[in-house]
């Protein structure tokens, strides 16, 4: 079993936006989904999930309303606002660029060592 890594600074917001972007979803489901998708590699601290959700809601990137779940309980469902979608796109794009660049540097460094 590989060791779980901590989430790099600032990426939690991006991940949340991505997950919420797939459709209205409540907090617990977001946590579950992040856990599953990252195949347990990334440790999502549940405690910081909710402050992040509230922060994003406060910034107008997420909107929330109360809906019934399949089990008939009321839960707070989050969805992306138009602004949130735009933010998701720019952040995702810049993340891509960053990881590519980092990857490039790493490969180049390996090449140099050979």
């Amino acid at each position: 079993m590989t060791a779980k890594s901590d989430l790099p600074q600032g990426t939690l917001d991006l991940l949340i936006l991505k997950v919420v972007g797939l459709g209205p979803v409540h907090g617990y489901a977001i946590a579950q989904r992040l856990q599953q998708v990252s195949r347990d590699v990334v440790q999502v601290p549940q405690g910081s999930l909710y402050p992040a959700l509230h922060r994003l809601e406060n910034r107008g990137l997420l909107a929330a309303d109360w809906q019934e779940t399949d089990t008939g309980r009321e839960a707070k469902f989050y969805r992306l606002t138009r602004q949130g979608r735009a933010q998701l796109e720019t952040e995702a794009a810049s993340w891509q660029r960053l990881t590519q660049a980092v990857g490039l540097i790493l490969r180049m460094a390996e090449g140099g060592a050979e």
Partner: peptide
């Protein structure tokens, strides 16, 4: 989840 009061406190701050 962690201490519920801490989480709440952080959520309030986030607001």
């Amino acid at each position: 989840l962690g201490g519920p009061e801490q989480v709440k406190e952080q959520c309030r701050d986030a607001r």
